[in-house]
Design a protein around this nucleic acid. Structure first.
Lengths: 125, 125
DNA sequence: CCGGATCCTCATGGATACTG
DNA sequence: CAGTATCCATGAGGATCCGG
């Protein structure tokens, strides 16, 4: 660990690869990023997220939120009232992840057109 | 393209979300990131990648490389010799993606410990 | 309103064998 | 060496119904 390969980010060895894979399994599923983006800096209720993230099902929203909560990326607060009300919000860790996801979005935005072009060329043999 | 939405990265609306999903479908599969990392700044032969990326199967390596080539992320060059020899390398676009992936790795590295901790706490109810 | 429990489908990807 | 072809297990995730 005290390897300190000179500085900053170095290479892609074993450990680093598995770290990346972990993160990808975290945000690589179908709904995590969507939910995280919807929670951007505000707190939202379950049905609110459900509507905003259509066509997600309640089942998947629930599962996604639990996963995110488990990893300390969102908080879940239950207000006992009638009707029941549950609020979700990003933790600081969740927000930091959001910023990384935005970096991804930036890359996607810059390269989307080129990729579409490459695909067309490739598919035309 | 010359859109220039005032500045920088804005928010997570519909379009942006689907862009992110596209990128995640690209690198979210089981082997793309591994292969991209192995191709880091050098060119590699098929079997070389196969060995380095164990336990990938030839089938998946082939499929992964084809996908990456289709998106213009790697180049495939065939030298007709005996025995046959095929070289793979990152394109500039592929390298730019690699740097984004490294950002992901950085986040993972900084938060891995905290996430493990959160999970333990959560699983203990 | 906020989910949990079940059932079922379908794509990802592993194993294996064969080819130029 | 550099793949392709085939078959098959597994699990993510959609649909639906039920409960607090």
């Amino acid at each position: 660990m005290s390897q300190a390969t000179s500085e900053a980010i170095e290479l892609c060895e074993e450990d680093r690869l598995s770290l990346i894979r972990d993160v990808l399994e975290r945000i690589g599923d179908k709904w995590s990023v969507v939910v995280i983006c919807q929670l951007d800096d505000t707190t939202r209720r379950f049905n609110e997220l459900s509507r905003m993230s259509k066509p997600i099902t309640k089942r998947m929203l629930s599962a996604t939120l639990q996963g995110l909560e488990r990893d300390g990326l969102v908080t879940r607060t239950v207000h006992d009232a009638k009707p029941p009300r549950v609020d979700y919000a990003l933790t600081p860790r969740g927000m930091s992840l959001l910023s990384v996801v935005r970096a991804l979005a930036g890359w996607a935005e810059n390269n989307a057109a080129g990729i579409v072009e490459s695909r067309a060329a490739y598919d035309a043999r």
